[in-house]
Simulated scan of single mutants.
Amino acid sequence: MSRVRKTGLIGWGAIGRVVGSAVAAGEVPGAELVGIVDNRRLGDAVPAPQLTMEQALESCDLIVEAAGQGVVREWGRAILTSGTDLLVASTGALTDDELAKGLLTTGPGRVYFTGGAVGGLDLLQAVRAMGPLSEVRLTTTKLPSTLEQPWMDERLLAAMRSAKEPVEVMRGTAREVPVRFPKSTNVAASVALAVGDLDAVRVSVVADPAAVHTSHVIEASGPHGSYRFEVRHLPDAANPATSQVVPYAVLRSLAALAGRSGQIL
């Protein structure tokens, strides 16, 4: 009989609430929600005790990150060094080469990543095994209000706020873009992880006032073929910067780690 994964959750936001509630309700066989780490006072409405990070590391063998790139940078290596496994939702943190190398080489805990709001990554990994892709492009389109950032100048902000049609707000690599949009472009890092090269993935971020759905279009080509994936998600009502599907992608990854049988990997 497989052991139960004693699971801690970092973050009680749009992603964490769905993930934590599902685990607490027994919807992920093999996983038990032991506690929740959050820097806010959550009160009695949460389905598990609120813990400090130190308490979580003492009582959990798996931590699920659902609180943003900063948490991965601050706590990632400490979690792994303690012997606790880490499931990362905020893959954009891995655009930092030093951090990524540290997470992948630190133990005895193991680090895992979820693809979040994008599909086709398994196929890109398979193609990559045959040889490098010659071109990979990602176009992410979201509502302008979800893309506003402190570094933007007044001219760009005014263009986004008054736009009547799509406006490109940044173009760069998968290394550059998630740093500028830490809550909105983890998909870029997920694609780059699949391709194996942050600098090979060219990313365009588009603000569209008519974007009822968040859209991610991946286009890749190489000696062995060409590939195009498009996903269109409804934004989360509580946090439009993320898609409704993201917590369910995290739950799927957690279910795989907890040992649920009979699913496509």
Rank of each mutant, 00 (worst) to 15 (best):
G26H: 05
V18L: 01
A78R: 15
A24G: 06
K6E: 13
L103S: 02
A158L: 08
G172C: 08
F229Q: 14
L143A: 13
V246C: 12
L234K: 09
V23L: 11
L99D: 09
V245I: 15
S145M: 06
I10E: 05
E135Y: 04
E65P: 06
D44W: 12
E54M: 02
P247I: 04
A200Y: 06
P29E: 08
N39Q: 13
L103N: 02
R161Y: 08
E168S: 13
L254D: 04
L99S: 11
G102D: 10
T105W: 12
R3E: 15
V111I: 14
I15V: 15
A31Y: 09
N239Y: 13
R40M: 08
E58Q: 11
L121P: 05
D208V: 01
L143H: 13
S184C: 09
L254R: 05
V18E: 13
S2Q: 13
Q69V: 14
L193I: 12
E176G: 09
V245Y: 02
D38M: 10
T91G: 11
L62P: 12
E54G: 01
T106S: 14
T91P: 08
G92S: 10
E27G: 09
R155M: 05
A220R: 02
R40F: 12
S134H: 14
P150E: 06
G13D: 00
S190P: 07
P247W: 06
S82V: 06
R137C: 05
G30P: 03
D122Q: 12
T95C: 15
G43I: 02
R77E: 14
P49K: 12
L42R: 09
V34W: 03
L80F: 08
R77A: 10
E165K: 09
W12M: 01
A45F: 10
S226C: 07
I218H: 00
S215W: 10
L254P: 09
I36R: 00
A241I: 06
I10V: 15
T105N: 12
V88L: 09
A100D: 14
S59Y: 01
A67I: 01
I264Q: 15
G30V: 04
Y112Q: 06
D153N: 11
P29Y: 00
L234A: 13
G43E: 05
V167Y: 04
G83K: 11
G16T: 00
V187H: 10
V23W: 03
S82A: 15
K6S: 11
K164F: 01
R5Q: 13
V136H: 11
G11H: 01
A188F: 14
D153P: 00
T185R: 06
G26C: 04
L193Q: 09
V111N: 05
R161Q: 15
D61R: 07
A126W: 03
L138C: 03
L234P: 00
R41W: 05
M1N: 11
P235N: 01
S226Q: 13
V212H: 08
V71F: 03
T81E: 15
S261M: 12
R180V: 07
V179E: 12
V231A: 10
R175W: 07
S253M: 08
E74S: 10
S226A: 11
G262Q: 09
K164W: 01
V169S: 04
V111D: 11
T140M: 15
L86Y: 10
V195L: 12
D44E: 14
A14S: 12
S134F: 00
E27W: 11
E168K: 04
P247L: 04
